[in-house]
């Protein structure tokens, strides 16, 4: 029974990280219809900047996370301005090719600067928490708590602020948004910044219990795509729930079946759910 609850905690941890990445991806898809493969590279760059801030400059963990979030948000905005904006109006395939190009470019740059080696990002929270007879590494609890706090913050931002409403308005009707005077390029930039910051935070939360290396974002972005297709493209609750579904499937699959099949489980589940519900769990876009 203890092992069962242990797997729940693991599933929540993985699910939280996946959800954060998927939220950024689905926001961009919902508003700009760009399948942003470079999102995985932003996740990776976030981990590297935190590693740089914490390791080379001696910034504390949470400060390094904030720094990485800012840097990656700016990088995401730059990618919108320099890569995706000029492609506005072009077929979606062009966006996709550009995004994959950007992914490879960023990986190559990171590899040129920091090398192809594996690095470790240290977290100050290495204690083990004993809770109701369960053993939980503090970092895992932090991941879950931070992720849920961010999701709540994002929800409040989108529902309660004027700027949040402009993002939702543009997702629901682009032309209607332009006609009330909402500036599409400003909304795009804000969306890219949020999405980049979410990816960076997810990476920095997860890095202390995994590793930092140039290709670390590849599998994550593939899974994030699986998640947003599962959840319904553009749906925010879908991204969170889809993230949890994949996180739980992986942690339980790894424990009860085999760790070797951990990554296959997500994709097998994807095929299964898609064959039953082809439009995803929550079709209908950004609300």
């Amino acid at each position: 029974m203890v092992m069962f609850f242990q797997q729940i905690l693991n599933g929540l941890t993985l699910g939280s990280v996946y959800s954060l990445v998927a939220l950024g991806l689905t926001l961009i898809y919902g508003i700009l219809h760009i399948p942003n493969f470079s999102h995985g590279a932003l996740y990776m760059v976030g981990a590297y900047f935190a590693y740089f801030f914490a390791g080379s400059l001696g910034v504390p963990y949470w400060g390094a996370m904030a720094g990485a979030a800012v840097v990656v948000a700016l990088l995401a905005v730059a990618s919108e301005r320099l890569v995706f904006r000029p492609l506005r109006g072009a077929p979606v395939l062009h966006d996709m090719i550009a995004a994959i190009g950007l992914l490879l470019f960023l990986e190559a740059v990171v590899q040129a600067i920091w090398g192809a080696d594996f690095h470790r990002l240290q977290s100050p929270h290495t204690q083990i928490v004993h809770l109701f007879g369960l053993v939980a590494p503090a970092q895992r609890l932090l991941i879950v708590a931070a992720a849920f706090a961010l999701m709540l913050g994002l929800h409040l931002f989108l529902q309660r602020t004027v700027m949040g409403s402009t993002i939702i308005a543009m997702a629901q009707d682009r032309e209607g948004a332009a006609l009330v005077g909402i500036d599409a390029s400003r909304v795009s930039m804000v969306t890219f910044a949020i999405s980049g910051a979410l990816a960076a935070v997810a990476a920095v939360l997860f890095a202390p219990i995994s590793l930092v290396y140039p290709a670390m974002g590849d599998l994550v972005i593939l899974k994030a795509f699986v998640i947003i297709i599962l959840g319904g493209m553009g749906s925010l609750p879908g991204a969170i729930l889809g993230g949890m579904v994949i996180g739980f499937a992986e942690s339980f699959g790894a424990f009860y079946i085999s760790t070797n099949y951990k990554d296959i489980i997500a994709f097998a589940l994807f095929v299964l759910i898609m064959s039953v519900r082809p439009s995803g769990l929550f079709p209908g876009g950004v609300r």
């Binding site: 409403s165 939702i168 209607g176 948004a177 006609l179 009330v180 909402i182 209908g284």
Partner: peptide, 26 residues
């Protein structure tokens, strides 16, 4: 100059009140 378009172009998932308030965005 404010344009009320053909096909209405409302924000279908938002409440009526929020649609109206976004009309005052500028």
């Amino acid at each position: 100059i404010v344009h009320c378009p053909e096909g209405r172009k409302l924000f279908p998932g938002m409440s009526v009140a929020k649609n109206l308030m976004l009309g005052a965005y500028v």
